[in-house]
Design a protein around this nucleic acid. Structure first.
Lengths: 197, 197
DNA sequence: ACCTGAACACCGTTCAAGT
DNA sequence: ACCTGAACACCGTTCAAGT
């Protein structure tokens, strides 16, 4: 990439981060170009679709999430591993308001710039779920696609101002539905040992 | 209302039903007016906001839902009543694509034309939940606002083409999380007596 | 009372023209 | 190779002018 192009690319991405943080995933691309002091065509040249821009904004988070899944796969308790990763996955999907809609649309569209990241994410979740299921810690009537859908639902919840206050609590409720033999309060506490009576 | 105005109102509503069915809750209002063969200002006169239009489209469904809750409040089993109503509430929120976002926004905005309907809906759910909780059939760490949020999340799930196939199954999963001492397969089967072994 | 549609300020996307 | 910005086809919303 030519030096001036590289500079434009980096600057656009930095500006986009601000604008998408402010306005959400369907931020005005015109506004991004304007604030970056760049022609509208330049933005489209570097990011041919909105998804391409979002993918660039989220790449690092997705990579961290995948790495995290790898670490958790060999951790002590398969149920805690699943729940911890689930929480982080929801956090990634909430990185920018409205991005979760793009993610769930991308998982069914191989042409989307977000497709690969989302498939990888779903696969990572599926592995952690399968391990928990094999150890009898998670219900066996759900699969990776269900898990991905629940991540989406929880991220969506958190994106709605009127529902966001319940998001953490409902994470516990839903996590408790996934796990076997565990109350939601245990989920919230990440299974700290109960106080002695 | 003058006769010509009444006619416009009714026709606009009928056309809007088609357009919103096709395009979802953020359908083009211009398109509605155009297809109704009416000036754009006429649409705005009758429905000053998008929410007012959606409210008119959904009123009948909301009324049915409220009536249904009344009937279920005195039904035999409080848990089945809750789950049945929950299923219908999700169906109402899925009546038109994208309408669930307007509903969750409206619940926090007293000025929204959809506010009253949503508050009524939440109240109806709260009563059914409270009864089930009093009888020990539902977990006691959730309230009406949580229930409303879960309805929203399930309706949103069903609105996403890539997740919709899981919507029914995940309804069962989440319903099982709300109820005490009941598996999700029982929820799906509405507690038909188990086959004799 | 009610209706119309132009006017305004925005979009996303494309692409000829420039450097 | 890369950048620019006008052009096009859309929006939502308002409001002066008409009947």
């Amino acid at each position: 990439m030519r030096a001036d192009a590289r500079k434009n690319y980096d600057h656009l991405l930095a500006v986009a981060r601000d604008v998408v943080t402010e306005q959400g995933a369907d931020a005005s691309l015109r506004d991004v170009a304007r604030r970056a002091g760049v022609g509208l065509g330049t933005l489209y040249r570097h990011f041919p679709t909105r998804e391409a821009l979002l993918e660039a904004l989220l790449r690092a988070s997705f990579d961290e999430l995948t790495a995290r899944a790898g670490g958790l796969e060999t951790s002590g308790s398969s149920d805690d591993a699943l729940v911890s990763w689930l929480r982080e996955a929801v956090a990634v999907a909430r990185n920018y308001r409205g991005v979760v809609a793009a993610m769930v649309a991308a998982i069914a569209d191989p042409d989307s710039a977000l497709h690969a990241s989302c498939v990888k994410m779903r696969a990572a979740g599926t592995r952690l779920l399968a391990r928990a299921q094999a150890e009898g810690m998670a219900r066996t009537d759900i699969d990776g696609a269900d898990l991905f859908a629940l991540i989406g639902a929880l991220a969506w919840l958190g994106d709605q101002p009127s529902l966001a206050p319940r998001a953490d609590h409902l994470f516990g409720v839903i996590a408790s539905a996934i796990l076997t033999n565990r109350g939601s309060s245990d989920v919230r506490r990440e299974r700290r040992p109960p106080a002695r009576r």
